[in-house]
Protein backbone atom coordinates (compact mmCIF):
# COMPACT_ATOMS: atom_id res chain seq x y z
CA UNK A 1 0.00 0.00 0.00
CA UNK A 2 1.28 3.42 -0.85
CA UNK A 3 1.45 5.62 2.20
CA UNK A 4 2.33 9.09 1.10
CA UNK A 5 4.56 11.27 3.22
CA UNK A 6 1.78 13.70 3.99
CA UNK A 7 -0.43 10.86 5.20
CA UNK A 8 2.30 9.53 7.41
CA UNK A 9 3.02 12.99 8.73
CA UNK A 10 -0.68 13.48 9.40
CA UNK A 11 -0.95 10.29 11.40
CA UNK A 12 2.25 11.08 13.29
CA UNK A 13 0.94 14.51 14.16
CA UNK A 14 -2.28 12.98 15.40
CA UNK A 15 -0.45 10.39 17.49
CA UNK A 16 1.76 13.12 18.93
CA UNK A 17 -1.29 15.18 19.83
CA UNK A 18 -2.96 12.25 21.59
CA UNK A 19 0.22 11.52 23.54
CA UNK A 20 0.52 15.17 24.50
CA UNK A 21 -3.00 15.31 25.88
CA UNK A 22 -2.39 11.93 27.46
CA UNK A 23 0.64 13.14 29.37
CA UNK A 24 -0.72 16.61 30.13
CA UNK A 25 -2.13 15.66 33.58
CA UNK A 26 1.14 14.04 34.57
CA UNK A 27 2.99 17.19 33.54
CA UNK A 28 0.53 19.19 35.64
CA UNK A 29 1.27 17.03 38.67
CA UNK A 30 5.00 17.45 38.21
CA UNK A 31 4.57 21.22 37.97
CA UNK A 32 2.40 21.27 41.10
CA UNK A 33 4.73 19.04 43.08
CA UNK A 34 7.54 21.56 42.70
CA UNK A 35 5.56 24.54 43.99
CA UNK A 36 6.45 25.77 47.45
CA UNK A 37 3.09 27.34 48.27
CA UNK A 38 0.48 25.64 50.31
CA UNK A 39 -2.20 26.58 47.76
CA UNK A 40 -1.14 25.91 44.22
CA UNK A 41 -1.56 28.59 41.60
CA UNK A 42 -0.05 28.70 38.15
CA UNK A 43 2.27 30.14 36.95
CA UNK A 44 4.51 30.54 39.95
CA UNK A 45 7.85 32.30 40.34
CA UNK A 46 11.12 30.43 39.98
CA UNK A 47 12.06 31.13 43.60
CA UNK A 48 8.87 29.38 44.67
CA UNK A 49 10.22 26.09 43.35
CA UNK A 50 11.13 23.50 45.91
CA UNK A 51 11.84 19.82 46.41
CA UNK A 52 10.56 20.09 49.98
CA UNK A 53 7.44 17.97 49.35
CA UNK A 54 9.51 15.17 47.92
CA UNK A 55 11.72 15.21 50.98
CA UNK A 56 8.63 15.20 53.18
CA UNK A 57 7.09 12.33 51.24
CA UNK A 58 10.24 10.24 51.35
CA UNK A 59 10.64 10.80 55.08
CA UNK A 60 7.00 10.26 55.93
CA UNK A 61 6.63 6.95 57.77
CA UNK A 62 2.98 6.96 56.72
CA UNK A 63 3.86 6.99 53.01
CA UNK A 64 6.45 4.28 53.58
CA UNK A 65 3.74 2.16 55.17
CA UNK A 66 1.47 2.57 52.16
CA UNK A 67 4.27 1.69 49.77
CA UNK A 68 5.05 -1.38 51.84
CA UNK A 69 1.42 -2.49 51.75
CA UNK A 70 1.21 -1.89 47.99
CA UNK A 71 4.38 -3.87 47.34
CA UNK A 72 3.31 -6.76 49.54
CA UNK A 73 -0.04 -6.97 47.77
CA UNK A 74 1.73 -6.77 44.39
CA UNK A 75 4.19 -9.55 45.18
CA UNK A 76 1.61 -12.00 46.47
CA UNK A 77 -0.78 -11.18 43.63
CA UNK A 78 1.92 -11.69 41.00
CA UNK A 79 3.03 -15.08 42.29
CA UNK A 80 -0.50 -16.37 42.74
CA UNK A 81 -1.92 -15.08 39.47
CA UNK A 82 1.01 -16.27 37.34
CA UNK A 83 0.96 -19.74 38.90
CA UNK A 84 -2.78 -20.02 38.31
CA UNK A 85 -2.44 -18.36 34.91
CA UNK A 86 0.08 -20.95 33.71
CA UNK A 87 -2.34 -23.83 34.19
CA UNK A 88 -5.39 -22.01 32.99
CA UNK A 89 -3.51 -20.86 29.87
CA UNK A 90 -2.92 -24.54 29.06
CA UNK A 91 -6.61 -25.20 29.54
CA UNK A 92 -7.42 -22.09 27.53
CA UNK A 93 -5.14 -22.49 24.53
CA UNK A 94 -3.41 -25.83 24.54
CA UNK A 95 -5.60 -28.72 25.62
CA UNK A 96 -8.66 -29.71 23.69
CA UNK A 97 -11.41 -30.50 26.10
CA UNK A 98 -15.12 -30.31 26.23
CA UNK A 99 -15.46 -27.35 28.56
CA UNK A 100 -12.91 -25.27 26.71
CA UNK A 101 -15.18 -22.78 24.99
CA UNK A 102 -17.17 -22.16 28.12
CA UNK A 103 -13.95 -21.81 30.07
CA UNK A 104 -12.66 -19.24 27.58
CA UNK A 105 -15.74 -17.12 28.13
CA UNK A 106 -15.68 -17.54 31.90
CA UNK A 107 -12.07 -16.40 32.11
CA UNK A 108 -13.11 -13.03 30.79
CA UNK A 109 -15.97 -12.53 33.17
CA UNK A 110 -14.03 -10.88 36.03
CA UNK A 111 -12.49 -8.48 33.52
CA UNK A 112 -15.83 -7.41 32.20
CA UNK A 113 -17.04 -6.77 35.70
CA UNK A 114 -17.13 -3.43 37.49
CA UNK A 115 -14.27 -3.50 39.94
CA UNK A 116 -15.91 -1.39 42.60
CA UNK A 117 -18.80 -3.84 42.81
CA UNK A 118 -16.42 -6.78 42.92
CA UNK A 119 -14.56 -5.08 45.76
CA UNK A 120 -17.77 -4.59 47.72
CA UNK A 121 -18.88 -8.14 47.09
CA UNK A 122 -15.58 -9.43 48.40
CA UNK A 123 -15.87 -7.16 51.44
CA UNK A 124 -19.22 -8.72 52.33
CA UNK A 125 -17.98 -12.22 51.63
CA UNK A 126 -14.94 -11.77 53.87
CA UNK A 127 -17.21 -10.27 56.50
CA UNK A 128 -19.49 -13.28 56.25
CA UNK A 129 -16.53 -15.62 56.63
CA UNK A 130 -15.43 -13.61 59.64
CA UNK A 131 -12.11 -12.72 58.03
CA UNK A 132 -10.66 -9.39 59.11
CA UNK A 133 -9.83 -7.50 55.95
CA UNK A 134 -6.14 -6.59 55.65
CA UNK A 135 -3.50 -6.41 52.93
CA UNK A 136 -3.73 -10.12 52.21
CA UNK A 137 -7.49 -10.01 51.57
CA UNK A 138 -6.72 -7.23 49.09
CA UNK A 139 -4.19 -9.57 47.48
CA UNK A 140 -6.97 -12.13 47.02
CA UNK A 141 -9.16 -9.46 45.44
CA UNK A 142 -6.36 -8.40 43.10
CA UNK A 143 -5.71 -12.02 42.12
CA UNK A 144 -9.35 -12.54 41.17
CA UNK A 145 -9.05 -9.65 38.76
CA UNK A 146 -5.45 -10.20 37.55
CA UNK A 147 -5.43 -14.00 37.11
CA UNK A 148 -7.65 -13.71 34.00
CA UNK A 149 -5.19 -11.18 32.57
CA UNK A 150 -2.16 -13.39 33.19
CA UNK A 151 -4.13 -16.28 31.69
CA UNK A 152 -4.69 -14.30 28.51
CA UNK A 153 -1.07 -13.16 28.27
CA UNK A 154 0.31 -16.67 28.74
CA UNK A 155 -2.35 -18.03 26.36
CA UNK A 156 -1.02 -15.86 23.56
CA UNK A 157 2.34 -17.57 24.03
CA UNK A 158 0.68 -20.97 24.37
CA UNK A 159 -1.07 -20.51 21.01
CA UNK A 160 2.34 -20.09 19.41
CA UNK A 161 3.61 -23.26 21.05
CA UNK A 162 4.66 -25.87 18.53
CA UNK A 163 2.66 -28.92 19.58
CA UNK A 164 5.04 -31.25 17.80
CA UNK A 165 7.72 -30.42 20.39
CA UNK A 166 5.57 -31.89 23.12
CA UNK A 167 4.67 -34.83 20.92
CA UNK A 168 8.34 -35.43 20.16
CA UNK A 169 9.14 -35.46 23.88
CA UNK A 170 6.29 -37.88 24.50
CA UNK A 171 7.53 -40.05 21.65
CA UNK A 172 10.91 -40.23 23.35
CA UNK A 173 9.31 -41.54 26.48
CA UNK A 174 8.77 -38.43 28.60
CA UNK A 175 5.90 -38.57 31.06
CA UNK A 176 3.19 -35.96 31.20
CA UNK A 177 4.87 -34.34 34.15
CA UNK A 178 8.30 -34.33 32.47
CA UNK A 179 6.84 -32.77 29.34
CA UNK A 180 5.21 -30.08 31.43
CA UNK A 181 8.31 -29.20 33.42
CA UNK A 182 11.01 -29.70 30.78
CA UNK A 183 9.28 -28.60 27.57
CA UNK A 184 6.11 -26.62 28.14
CA UNK A 185 7.19 -24.52 31.10
CA UNK A 186 10.49 -23.29 29.61
CA UNK A 187 8.79 -22.55 26.28
CA UNK A 188 6.10 -20.48 27.99
CA UNK A 189 8.65 -18.65 30.14
CA UNK A 190 8.66 -15.36 28.16
CA UNK A 191 4.89 -15.18 28.42
CA UNK A 192 5.03 -15.90 32.13
CA UNK A 193 7.59 -13.19 32.72
CA UNK A 194 5.57 -10.56 30.92
CA UNK A 195 2.51 -11.79 32.83
CA UNK A 196 4.45 -11.23 36.08
CA UNK A 197 5.25 -7.68 34.98
CA UNK A 198 1.65 -6.95 34.21
CA UNK A 199 0.48 -8.45 37.47
CA UNK A 200 2.85 -6.37 39.61
CA UNK A 201 2.11 -3.18 37.73
CA UNK A 202 -1.65 -3.56 37.59
CA UNK A 203 -1.74 -4.35 41.27
CA UNK A 204 0.46 -1.33 41.99
CA UNK A 205 -1.94 1.02 40.25
CA UNK A 206 -5.20 -0.57 41.33
CA UNK A 207 -7.53 1.44 43.48
CA UNK A 208 -11.10 0.27 43.08
CA UNK A 209 -10.48 -3.17 44.53
CA UNK A 210 -8.16 -2.03 47.29
CA UNK A 211 -10.62 0.60 48.46
CA UNK A 212 -12.92 -1.99 50.00
CA UNK A 213 -10.65 -4.90 50.73
CA UNK A 214 -7.57 -3.59 52.54
CA UNK A 215 -9.32 -2.92 55.85
CA UNK A 216 -7.01 -1.25 58.32
CA UNK A 217 -4.03 -1.45 55.96
CA UNK A 218 -4.14 1.15 53.26
CA UNK A 219 -2.51 0.98 49.82
CA UNK A 220 -0.97 4.02 48.20
CA UNK A 221 -3.73 4.79 45.67
CA UNK A 222 -6.28 4.74 48.49
CA UNK A 223 -4.37 7.22 50.57
CA UNK A 224 -4.06 9.53 47.59
CA UNK A 225 -7.77 9.27 46.87
CA UNK A 226 -8.65 10.15 50.44
CA UNK A 227 -6.40 13.22 50.31
CA UNK A 228 -7.63 14.31 46.89
CA UNK A 229 -11.30 14.23 47.71
CA UNK A 230 -10.73 16.17 50.93
CA UNK A 231 -9.18 19.24 49.33
CA UNK A 232 -5.73 20.14 48.06
CA UNK A 233 -2.72 19.03 50.05
CA UNK A 234 0.75 19.93 48.79
CA UNK A 235 2.36 16.56 49.46
CA UNK A 236 -0.16 14.74 47.24
CA UNK A 237 1.39 15.76 43.88
CA UNK A 238 4.84 14.80 45.09
CA UNK A 239 3.68 11.35 46.18
CA UNK A 240 1.85 11.02 42.89
CA UNK A 241 4.99 11.80 40.91
CA UNK A 242 7.00 9.35 43.01
CA UNK A 243 4.34 6.76 42.29
CA UNK A 244 4.62 7.41 38.56
CA UNK A 245 8.42 7.18 38.75
CA UNK A 246 8.23 3.84 40.54
CA UNK A 247 5.82 2.56 37.89
CA UNK A 248 8.11 3.69 35.06
CA UNK A 249 11.15 2.12 36.70
CA UNK A 250 9.20 -1.12 37.19
CA UNK A 251 8.16 -1.06 33.54
CA UNK A 252 11.71 -0.52 32.32
CA UNK A 253 13.25 -3.15 34.59
CA UNK A 254 10.61 -5.79 33.98
CA UNK A 255 10.40 -5.26 30.24
CA UNK A 256 14.18 -5.33 30.13
CA UNK A 257 13.95 -8.80 31.62
CA UNK A 258 11.36 -9.79 29.02
CA UNK A 259 13.60 -8.57 26.20
CA UNK A 260 16.55 -10.39 27.66
CA UNK A 261 14.78 -13.72 28.08
CA UNK A 262 13.18 -13.28 24.67
CA UNK A 263 16.57 -12.86 23.06
CA UNK A 264 17.90 -15.86 24.93
CA UNK A 265 14.99 -17.95 23.70
CA UNK A 266 15.51 -16.76 20.15
CA UNK A 267 19.19 -17.61 20.28
CA UNK A 268 18.31 -21.09 21.52
CA UNK A 269 15.75 -21.60 18.76
CA UNK A 270 17.07 -23.08 15.49
CA UNK A 271 17.68 -20.37 12.93
CA UNK A 272 15.91 -20.65 9.62
Amino acid sequence: MIVSRTQKAGFSLYAGLVLLVFYFPILCIIVASLSKRRFFSFPYAAEDMTLKWYADALQSPQVADFVGVSLRIGAVTAVASVAIGFFSALAYARYRWRGRQTFQRLVLLPLFFPQSVLGLALLMWFNFLDLTTAWWTAAIAHTVWIAPITTLIISIQAYGLDESLEEAARDMGASRWQILSKITLPLLMPGMISATCFAVLLSWGNFALSLFTTGADSALPEWLYARMTSGYQPMVPAVGVLNVIVAIVLVIVLFGIVRWTGRKARRAAPSH
Binding site: I26, F40, L202, G205, F207, L224, M228, P237, A247
Partner: peptide, 17 residues
Amino acid sequence: TSLFVSENIRLFGWVIG
Protein backbone atom coordinates in the same frame (compact mmCIF):
# COMPACT_ATOMS: atom_id res chain seq x y z
CA THR B 1 2.77 2.74 30.98
CA SER B 2 -0.14 4.88 32.06
CA LEU B 3 -2.10 1.72 32.89
CA PHE B 4 0.22 1.18 35.80
CA VAL B 5 -0.25 4.59 37.35
CA SER B 6 -3.31 4.68 39.53
CA GLU B 7 -6.13 6.41 37.71
CA ASN B 8 -6.62 8.67 40.73
CA ILE B 9 -3.23 10.21 40.25
CA ARG B 10 -3.83 10.84 36.59
CA LEU B 11 -7.24 12.32 37.27
CA PHE B 12 -5.72 14.51 39.93
CA GLY B 13 -3.46 15.89 37.21
CA TRP B 14 -6.56 17.16 35.42
CA VAL B 15 -7.74 18.73 38.66
CA ILE B 16 -4.48 20.67 38.87
CA GLY B 17 -4.83 21.58 35.21
